[in-house]
Computed example of a mutant assay.
Amino acid sequence: MSQIQVYDYAMTSEENSSVLRILSIDDDQLDRMRLRSICRKAGLSVEFTEAADLDEVRDRLKIQPYDLVFIDHHLGMHTGLDALRILQSHEEQLNAIPIMLTSAVEYKVAVEAMRRGCADYIVKDDLSVDSLIKSITSAIERRALYSALADARASEAELKDIFKRFMSGCGPEMREVLRRSMSSVRAVKTQARSDENVDVTLLSNLSLFERSAKDLVVFMDDLETVVGDSRRVTVNELRSRI
């Protein structure tokens, strides 16, 4: 196993606070050197760590959390997907953004890597300052989008749980109150219509209350449907039901 190599380009303490911690996983030393050189040419403030095989990957992941992890698909007897799986199983690397490096003929590999969690991929033959910056930018933006979607789904789950507690808690009592209120309103309206001196405004207000109570019953029926629905319900769908 090779000695751990970390390159920080003699950054000051102020620069180090915003440094990108990069892990390069590649069994070809020349390719690792090339990636490190392009990072430097791109003007990135980086702390660059290298790993040549899966054993070294496991060791490097214990050192510190990384911001970006570049993974070559070809790793001797293993593949970049094996390294990706190790990265994703490491609790301290949950925020690390993986980017797969492939050859020009391995687009299926790139698609599979993206499907399994890579934020982006770079064709090795096209690796340059421009392609590196573009890939890093796209990967960070894509990760931010995924994070926002995850937060939205968590909010929807929390909202659904609130509805469930409401329906199982005060829902039955509220239905009974509405039933009795609507029954009383109908009785009052029937009696009021036989009185020639009844205030028309009173009848109008009673009808308005009755319609509102019916709408509330329908809304509670919809909530029961949402709570009982096994599929995930989006906020927009819930609003359309209301």
Rank of each mutant, 00 (worst) to 15 (best):
Q88K: 15
I133Y: 03
Y146F: 09
D199V: 03
I133W: 02
A157W: 00
M77Y: 06
A192V: 11
G117R: 04
D55L: 07
D31V: 06
C118I: 02
L208R: 14
R165N: 12
G169P: 03
L23A: 00
M11E: 00
I136E: 02
R142G: 02
V198G: 04
E91N: 12
I140A: 11
S135I: 03
E112L: 12
L30G: 05
R36I: 01
A119Q: 10
D215L: 10
E158S: 11
D27F: 00
A52H: 11
V185I: 15
L178F: 11
F219C: 11
S184Q: 15
V19E: 02
G171S: 04
Y121R: 02
N205S: 11
V185C: 10
D26N: 14
I22K: 03
A144S: 11
E47R: 15
L206M: 10
L68A: 02
I140T: 13
R116Y: 09
P98T: 01
I4C: 08
K41G: 08
D53F: 01
A139D: 05
N16R: 15
E15W: 01
L127Q: 01
K214T: 12
F219K: 13
M114R: 09
D8Y: 00
V233Y: 07
E237K: 14
E56V: 05
L68M: 05
L127G: 04
M11W: 06
M100L: 14
Q3H: 05
N197G: 06
E237Q: 14
E91C: 09
K189S: 13
Q29M: 10
S2I: 05
L84D: 12
L208G: 12
E156Y: 01
S135K: 02
S230C: 06
S230L: 09
E14Q: 12
M77V: 08
L101V: 11
V200R: 09
I97W: 04
E91T: 12
D55K: 11
E237V: 05
A10G: 08
D53T: 00
S135H: 01
A52W: 04
V111D: 08
D82P: 09
D221V: 06
R165F: 04
L127V: 07
R211T: 15
F219A: 13
